[in-house]
Amino acid sequence: MKKIISFLLLQIITVTAFAQRPDTNVEMADLMRSNGKIYVVIAVLLTIFAGLLLFLISQELRLKRMEKKLNNHISNQNNNQ
């Protein structure tokens, strides 16, 4: 089940060739792309995302320990009764 769902979802992100931008007079950040400065922006975004992820994961692991502790406590309590 999980393999199928993961496969299908990851299938979506398989990028085929991106078409060349047609010549237009609309001003875009082409300079940022041509001199590679856009990677700086991507690095910043990835760092922020990584920070948030680490926070969420550590919070979940802490929660897991709490659940375990509480569960032991409750089952002890039930045994004593």
Partner: peptide
């Protein structure tokens, strides 16, 4: 995580229509 990493990186990199 994988889908969001994809969105962040390709979302900034991919060619978009010039409007």
């Amino acid at each position: 995580i994988m889908l969001m990493l994809f969105t962040i990186v390709i979302g900034m990199m991919a060619t978009v229509p010039a409007l």
